[in-house]
Design a protein around this nucleic acid. Structure first.
Lengths: 100, 100
DNA sequence: TAGTTATTTAGCTAATTGTCTAACCATGAG
DNA sequence: CTCATGGTTAGACAATTAGCTAAATAACTA
């Protein structure tokens, strides 16, 4: 669980998640939104993968990354619950981004 | 905002917040729940203070720390909103722990 | 097959983190 | 005033992190 917060604690990684929220993207496409080198970005993807927040599907030359919304949701939910808070999906389309 | 997640990304600090959720405690009282040295714990309090998640009031010899629930709530809320999620207080007593 | 493109791996560095012990400051008690 | 107690600050250290360049791997393209 701390793995997730660790992953979320970097602004670049947070931004990656936000970008993936709109639609799945491949590594290069994502990287275009940042000034960092590809390898640096690749390292960020690794952290996010290890936290299970994203998943990468190799499709030919490309690796398509997508957000695993349910994992983010669960992590937030679990944490929130500890503090007497609740988390809910506001709109239905969140889960659309995911096909597990 | 990443400051908050950074603060939350350490299990010890998370535990400190949970402990403070039940009631305000002084530094030593908190430290009793852990195996770390007092200075180590003190460093953790500093991180939490910098993230505005806790506040310490000096009362005589003691420093009484208390959870700033509203800050935690706001951070979670802001973040959640970015991903189409919402956060709510489940029960009323959460805000009781705080008198800003 | 040879070259190009997409991405990761390897190896480096500087900065940050989490931990410790020892020393310091502040408060209250005798 | 002196001592004990609660807590932090200072300084050291090993491990981790975030960034880089250069090299390696994998897959398409001509």
């Amino acid at each position: 669980m701390s793995t997730v917060f660790k992953a979320l604690s970097d602004p670049t990684r947070q931004r990656v998640l936000e970008l993936l929220r709109t639609r799945p993207m491949n590594a290069g496409e994502l990287a275009e939104h940042f000034e960092f080198s590809k390898p640096t970005m690749s390292a960020h993807y690794t952290v996010l993968k290890e936290a299970r927040l994203i998943e990468g599907d190799k499709q030919g030359k490309y690796i398509i990354y997508r957000l695993k919304m349910s994992v983010l949701e669960d992590a937030l939910l679990t944490f929130a619950k500890t503090f007497g808070l609740s988390v809910q999906a506001e709109n239905a389309d969140a889960s659309d981004l995911e096909k597990e």
